[in-house]
Design a protein around this nucleic acid. Structure first.
Lengths: 248, 248
DNA sequence: AAATTAAATGCTTTTTATTGCATGAAATGA
DNA sequence: TCATTTCATGCAATAAAAAGCATTTAATTT
C-alpha cells in the first residue's frame, strides 16, 4: 500500500470512528507501528487530525469538546464583517445557527432595522442584544447538539416565510457536491430556509471549501453569494466564480 | 481509552452536567482516581474547567454564579428544589421564563425523563444541558425584555398542547387579585399556558406574596400549588391555604 | 539499462509519558 | 475537635515516542 493511500485510509478511519489506535492500524495495514506513528505525525502536522499518546482523534471530535474558544475566530469575524454589508434596513433575514452566524450577529451595524428569523437559540439570544432588530424564533423540538429547532413544525413555519436573504452557516462546501452537512434534521431545516429566501448566502471559512459531508443541503447553483475570509481572486475560489456565485 | 479521548469525555460530561465527581468518573472510565485527578488538574490548567475538591465544575456554571448575581438566589434555589419534586417521568411540562425557572432547570434530577415546553430562550438553553429531557421551543416574536416568545402564533401553539403541569414564574401574587404581571404580551402567554395544563404551579419568593401588578394573569383559584421558600404553616400563607391551594 | 540519489520502512536502543500505588499533608464535615 | 475524604508527591512498572541506523523501494540521472 502506498504511503498516501495509507494516510488517506487512516484519515478516513479516524473521521469515521473519531479515534484510532496505533496498534490496530499497524495490524490492519500490516506496517510497523513506527510507520503508523510517522503517518500520524505528518497528518497531525498538516492539521488533519489530533495526535494523542497511543493513537489519534478526529478534529471534529476533539474540537467539539476541547475548543473553549471558537475555532478560527478571527476568520469568522472577518466573514461576519463582509456578510453584514449585505443586510439592508427593512429586510427579513433567515439564519441558521453556528459560530459564524453568532459573529454575524455581533457584527451588525448598530442602527440596522431588520427582522431576523432563526431557529438557533444562541443566535436568537445574540440578536436580542441588538437594540433595533426584531427577532422571530422558529419553534419546535430543540436538537441538543446544534441547539436549533428541528422538525416538521419548524420546517412548515419556515416555508410560510418569504425572506429577502438567508445566511447559511456552512459545514462543507464543494463545487461538485454543493453544500453538505452531517445532521439529517439540520439539513432539512437548512433546505427549507434556502427555499424560502430570495437570496442565499453561504458563510464558509476557507478550510471548509472543497470539503464534503454525507448529506446534501443544496446544489452549488442554489447559492447566490459565497462569503469567506479569503480574497475574491483567490485561486481556490475560481471554480465557484465560474459556477456563477458572487464572491465577497 | 486514549488520554486525550478521556479528557474530551470528561469535558463533555462536565459541560453537560455542570459538575463531575472523581469517583464517578473513575468508575465510568475505569481508571484510577489519581488519573482522573491528574486529568482534571491538566484541564484546569488549560482553563477548560474549574477544579474543585472532589471533582470539577463547568466554567459556564461557575461563572453564572460568580458574575451576574441573581436576586435572592438562595430562596430561588430552595423553591426550585421543592418544585422539582412535582415532576415525574413522562410528564409534559410547560414553563414560563424567569430566574426561578432557571433554578428549577438546574435542580432537575439527573435521570428525569420528561418533555419541557417553553418560550423562554434562557430556560430552553438550561434544559438543553440536561442529558435526558426533551426540549420543545414555542416559536414567535421574541420579547427583548423577557427573552420569551410572545404573540398569536405562540399562544395558538400553546393552546394545542395538553400539558401535565405548568410552572409559572411569578411576578406578583395576592389572595384577592390572584396572579398579576406588568407586561401585556407576557400575560397572554402565561394565560394560555395555565389553560393548557392539568396542574398549575406558581413559583413565588416570599416577598412577592401579597403584592399586585397591573394586569391579571389568573384568579387565585386557578393555581393548584404554591411553592415558596417559606414553611407551609407560615402565617403569610394561610389565606392561600384557605383558598384551597396546596402549599409546598 | 545502470548508477545514483532520495524516500520510505523496519529494527533497536534510548528517552519520555502515562498510570497506579503508597505515603503524608491538607481539606472537609460532623 | 476528630474522623474521613481528598490531594499532592515520589516511585516503579509499563507503554509509547523519538532517534539513529540498516535495508529496501522508488525515482532520477546518466
Amino acid at each position: 500500500m502506498l504511503k498516501k493511500e495509507r494516510q488517506a485510509f487512516i484519515l478516513h478511519k479516524v473521521n469515521l470512528h473519531n479515534r484510532v489506535v496505533c496498534g490496530d492500524l499497524s495490524l490492519e495495514i500490516n506496517v510497523s507501528e513506527d510507520t503508523i506513528r510517522r503517518d500520524l505525525q505528518e497528518l497531525s502536522d498538516e492539521g488533519k487530525l489530533i495526535k494523542a499518546h497511543g493513537g489519534a482523534l478526529s478534529k471534529s471530535f476533539y474540537n467539539s469538546f476541547n475548543s473553549s474558544k471558537v475555532y478560527s475566530l478571527e476568520n469568522k469575524k472577518c466573514i461576519a464583517q463582509k456578510a453584514a454589508t449585505l443586510i439592508k434596513d427593512g429586510m427579513f433575514v433567515l439564519t441558521t445557527g453556528g459560530t459564524t452566524i453568532i459573529e454575524l450577529a455581533r457584527a451588525l451595524p448598530e442602527n440596522l432595522q431588520a427582522t431576523f428569523i432563526t431557529g438557533s437559540l444562541p443566535a436568537a439570544l445574540e440578536y436580542l442584544h441588538h437594540p433595533t432588530i426584531e427577532v422571530i424564533l422558529i419553534g419546535d423540538k430543540v436538537s441538543k447538539n446544534s441547539q436549533i429547532t428541528v422538525g416538521g413544525e419548524a420546517i412548515s413555519k419556515i416555508k410560510q416565510i418569504k425572506a429577502d436573504i438567508c445566511f447559511v452557516g456552512t459545514n462543507a462546501l464543494d463545487a461538485e457536491h454543493g453544500l453538505t452537512d452531517n445532521d439529517w434534521e439540520v439539513v432539512q431545516v437548512k433546505k427549507a430556509m434556502i427555499e424560502s429566501s430570495a437570496q442565499v448566502v453561504s458563510l464558509t471559512i476557507g478550510e471548509k471549501i472543497n470539503t464534503c459531508q454525507r448529506i446534501q443541503v443544496c446544489d452549488i447553483t442554489a447559492i447566490d453569494v459565497l462569503v469567506t475570509e479569503l480574497e475574491a481572486d483567490s485561486v481556490i475560489l475560481q471554480p465557484y466564480l465560474k459556477k456563477g456565485l458572487k464572491i465577497l
